[in-house]
Computed example of a mutant assay.
Amino acid sequence: MSSVPGTDDTAAPPRPSSAVPVVGFDLDMTLVDSSAGIAATMRAVLAEVGVEVSAADVWPYAGMPLELIVAGLAPGRSASEVARLTARYRELYPALGVPTVRSYPAAAAALSAPAGHGGRSVVVSAKHTPNVHRVLAGTGLASSIAAQDVTGDLFAEDKGVRLRELGATAYVGDHPGDVRAARVAGAVAVAVTTGSHDAAALREAGADVVLGGLEDFPAWLEGHATDLRDGKRTVPGPR
């Protein structure tokens, strides 16, 4: 129920007022292919408690918070055990995961593109914040993003809150949770099919735009930047 007569508290948040693009990017499977490192680290952690999983078992969980991945792959564990295994993963990831991560070929250009329209890029990820910085540095992408514009340890709607604080006009990600994040932020939900979800699943989740990869992003951004300059509403209402 609305707290103010004649209003609806459940309405979608207003779109960002920026006249220039402020574009948020997810990290894993959006800017970088981190699948091998995530699988290797998760397999090592779970093997320590006698749980054997394959890379194929880990793949559907790409982009999700670690606690949910651990609980899904090793069901029946107590909350304290899940927390311990999550901490162990974060301990091992710099050595087992980071060296295998590769940026997608168009990632650096995509991160730099908003600046060409007077805007900027931000990175908001579910990955542990120190590891986000390690991955960006290890893949050479750190030079394309300001350190203060990097946030980790957030998923789905929680990402959206941070994106709204940053004034994001669009959010690019590979997971349905990223679409939900864009909705909370009042930003355009731009999905890429480089993760474990195909175009149909991302459209079903409510993505406004589905791209095959970041190589298609600069062309889309041209139209988005023009709409912002012209004051056009580029963020649809609730679905």
Results as ranks from 00 to 15, higher is better:
12 A>L: 10
37 G>L: 03
50 G>C: 12
102 R>F: 03
36 A>Y: 02
25 F>N: 09
153 D>Q: 07
24 G>R: 04
199 A>Y: 05
70 V>D: 12
194 T>E: 11
189 A>Q: 10
161 V>Q: 06
226 T>C: 03
91 E>S: 10
210 V>Q: 12
32 V>H: 07
236 P>N: 02
94 P>C: 06
160 G>L: 07
184 V>M: 07
74 A>G: 07
106 A>W: 05
183 R>M: 01
239 R>D: 10
22 V>H: 04
233 R>L: 02
186 G>M: 04
153 D>A: 06
185 A>Q: 09
139 T>L: 11
218 P>S: 06
142 A>N: 08
188 V>D: 00
152 G>C: 06
83 A>W: 05
118 G>R: 12
66 L>D: 12
24 G>K: 09
162 R>Y: 01
27 L>A: 06
90 R>G: 09
145 I>D: 06
224 H>V: 00
11 A>W: 04
160 G>S: 04
239 R>T: 12
115 A>D: 08
146 A>Q: 11
155 F>D: 01
41 T>K: 02
213 G>E: 14
84 R>P: 00
156 A>Y: 13
151 T>M: 07
206 G>C: 12
48 E>V: 12
181 A>P: 14
68 L>I: 01
148 Q>S: 13
90 R>I: 05
203 R>H: 13
166 L>S: 04
2 S>M: 00
105 P>M: 09
173 G>H: 08
81 E>V: 11
9 D>A: 14
5 P>C: 04
104 Y>E: 12
121 S>C: 14
4 V>W: 10
42 M>T: 15
226 T>Q: 13
152 G>A: 08
229 R>L: 09
173 G>E: 07
113 A>Q: 09
57 D>H: 03
209 V>H: 05
155 F>N: 10
20 V>K: 14
184 V>R: 14
107 A>R: 13
2 S>P: 03
77 R>P: 14
128 H>P: 02
72 G>V: 10
152 G>S: 06
18 S>F: 00
146 A>H: 11
155 F>K: 02
9 D>P: 04
44 A>D: 14
71 A>R: 05
110 A>G: 13
86 T>W: 02
70 V>G: 07
28 D>Y: 00
153 D>F: 09
161 V>C: 03
36 A>I: 07
120 R>V: 02
148 Q>L: 06
204 E>H: 15
221 L>C: 08
88 R>G: 04
180 R>P: 00
140 G>C: 11
125 S>Y: 06
41 T>E: 11
125 S>T: 14
21 P>W: 08
7 T>I: 01
25 F>I: 13
186 G>S: 08
44 A>C: 13
179 V>T: 07
155 F>S: 10
216 D>Y: 02
38 I>C: 05
